[in-house]
Computed example of a mutant assay.
Amino acid sequence: MPDIAQEALDSAKSAHHRIDGVEREIKDIRSLTAAVATVNTKVDGLDSDVKEIKSDVKAITSRPGKWWDKLIAAIIGAIGAAVAGTIIAAILKVGGAA
């Protein structure tokens, strides 16, 4: 019988060692979980910053296109006004000569 008691005692000691190991692993997992939560918060902040930067870049890059559009519209308007002025002048000369 003393061998059975010793085996039970050895088994209990072994179980305690394994439990201690599991407790250390659980603490490590909890620390890792907290670190991942912190990283996740920072990534969410970066995501919103990146979206804001992208919208700013789009606004900045669209400006030269808008300026070219305005310039071309002004040139076309000036040409149209010159053509219309020439036509009106020709009509008035012909009308005045008649």
Rank of each mutant, 00 (worst) to 15 (best):
residue 71 L to G: 09
residue 70 K to M: 11
residue 79 I to G: 05
residue 21 G to M: 02
residue 46 L to V: 10
residue 38 T to P: 03
residue 12 A to G: 04
residue 54 K to Y: 06
residue 53 I to Q: 12
residue 84 A to P: 02
residue 78 A to H: 08
residue 49 D to A: 06
residue 20 D to C: 04
residue 60 I to F: 06
residue 49 D to E: 06
residue 77 G to R: 00
residue 66 K to W: 08
residue 64 P to N: 08
residue 38 T to A: 14
residue 54 K to D: 09
residue 72 I to G: 06
residue 29 I to E: 05
residue 62 S to C: 05
residue 32 L to P: 01
residue 84 A to V: 14
residue 74 A to R: 10
residue 74 A to P: 03
residue 27 K to H: 13
residue 14 S to F: 01
residue 60 I to W: 02
residue 72 I to P: 06
residue 37 A to E: 13
residue 37 A to D: 15
residue 33 T to F: 00
residue 65 G to T: 13
residue 48 S to R: 14
residue 51 K to N: 06
residue 21 G to K: 02
residue 44 D to P: 00
residue 69 D to K: 07
residue 68 W to N: 01
residue 68 W to F: 11
residue 24 R to Q: 10
residue 22 V to K: 00
residue 79 I to C: 09
residue 76 I to N: 06
residue 52 E to T: 13
residue 78 A to D: 04
residue 80 G to P: 02
residue 83 V to T: 13
residue 40 N to T: 14
residue 52 E to G: 10
residue 24 R to T: 07
residue 62 S to I: 09
residue 43 V to R: 05
residue 54 K to P: 00
residue 85 G to Q: 09
residue 67 W to F: 08
residue 82 A to R: 03
residue 13 K to L: 09
residue 44 D to Y: 07
residue 40 N to A: 12
residue 64 P to K: 02
residue 28 D to Q: 03
residue 69 D to T: 09
residue 61 T to I: 12
residue 60 I to C: 04
residue 12 A to V: 14
residue 14 S to H: 02
residue 77 G to K: 04
residue 70 K to G: 08
residue 71 L to R: 12
residue 66 K to L: 15
residue 81 A to T: 10
residue 35 A to H: 02
residue 27 K to C: 09
residue 76 I to E: 04
residue 62 S to G: 11
residue 42 K to F: 01
residue 27 K to S: 12
residue 55 S to G: 01
residue 47 D to M: 07
residue 32 L to W: 04
residue 68 W to P: 00
residue 57 V to P: 04
residue 85 G to W: 11
residue 35 A to P: 00
residue 70 K to I: 15
residue 77 G to N: 02
residue 75 I to K: 05
residue 34 A to N: 09
residue 22 V to Q: 05
residue 55 S to I: 15
residue 81 A to P: 00
residue 22 V to G: 02
residue 85 G to N: 01
residue 61 T to R: 14
residue 44 D to F: 07
residue 35 A to V: 00
residue 39 V to W: 03
residue 44 D to C: 04
residue 22 V to H: 01
residue 12 A to L: 13
residue 44 D to R: 15
residue 77 G to S: 01
residue 41 T to C: 04
residue 30 R to N: 15
residue 12 A to R: 06
residue 22 V to S: 07
residue 67 W to M: 14
residue 59 A to M: 03
residue 56 D to P: 07
residue 34 A to H: 09
residue 17 H to F: 08
residue 83 V to D: 07
residue 71 L to C: 08
residue 43 V to H: 03
residue 18 R to C: 01
residue 59 A to K: 08
residue 53 I to R: 13
residue 65 G to F: 09
residue 74 A to E: 13
residue 73 A to V: 15
residue 68 W to V: 12
residue 29 I to A: 12
residue 76 I to R: 03
residue 62 S to Y: 00
residue 24 R to L: 09
residue 65 G to A: 13
residue 75 I to T: 05
residue 13 K to V: 13
residue 72 I to R: 08
residue 66 K to C: 11
residue 24 R to F: 02
residue 58 K to C: 03
residue 58 K to R: 11
residue 82 A to Y: 05
residue 85 G to K: 10
residue 16 H to G: 07
residue 33 T to H: 01
residue 83 V to F: 14
residue 35 A to C: 03
residue 27 K to M: 09
residue 36 V to W: 04
residue 55 S to L: 13
residue 27 K to I: 09
residue 51 K to C: 06
residue 56 D to N: 15
residue 32 L to T: 06
